[in-house]
Amino acid sequence: MTHRTRKRLALVALLVGLPVYVILAVSLVNWLDRTFGRLPIWAEVPLYAILAFAWALPLKPLFRGIGQADPDE
């Protein structure tokens, strides 16, 4: 995959994928609230921390090296 293609895919992931992920994460938390009631603070904080970083883990290889100059030039 070329550097230019990776840059474009990273941009699409940030502009389209991240808002979709946020909507899904908020929907999950709302469903948990409706189903089980509000979580205690000791459970809610780790849940939000996990959700905050979970989106980046599968995309880490795509973002690696994007901010650097094209190595083929």
Rank of each mutant, 00 (worst) to 15 (best):
61 P>K: 11
19 P>I: 14
1 M>W: 08
11 L>V: 07
39 L>C: 04
51 L>A: 00
48 Y>T: 01
7 K>W: 07
49 A>G: 03
63 F>I: 02
3 H>S: 02
46 P>I: 09
34 R>Q: 15
5 T>V: 11
5 T>I: 13
71 P>A: 04
38 R>K: 15
44 E>R: 09
55 W>V: 05
25 A>D: 01
64 R>F: 07
47 L>H: 02
11 L>K: 13
32 L>Y: 01
36 F>E: 04
67 G>R: 15
48 Y>G: 05
51 L>T: 00
59 L>S: 04
33 D>M: 06
60 K>P: 01
41 I>V: 14
19 P>V: 15
72 D>Q: 13
45 V>Y: 03
44 E>I: 02
7 K>G: 08
3 H>G: 02
11 L>R: 14
57 L>S: 03
26 V>E: 13
24 L>N: 02
6 R>V: 06
58 P>C: 10
66 I>N: 06
47 L>M: 10
51 L>E: 01
14 L>M: 14
66 I>L: 14
12 V>S: 00
22 V>Y: 03
38 R>E: 13
73 E>N: 11
41 I>H: 10
13 A>T: 11
56 A>S: 05
45 V>M: 08
56 A>I: 10
33 D>P: 00
60 K>N: 08
44 E>G: 02
8 R>C: 05
55 W>N: 00
6 R>D: 05
64 R>Q: 12
69 A>T: 10
27 S>V: 00
2 T>G: 13
24 L>R: 02
20 V>I: 15
1 M>V: 09
25 A>T: 00
49 A>H: 01
35 T>R: 09
59 L>G: 05
13 A>M: 08
39 L>I: 07
72 D>T: 05
43 A>H: 04
6 R>P: 03
73 E>T: 05
8 R>V: 10
5 T>W: 10
12 V>H: 02
4 R>N: 09
65 G>V: 13
12 V>L: 14
45 V>P: 01
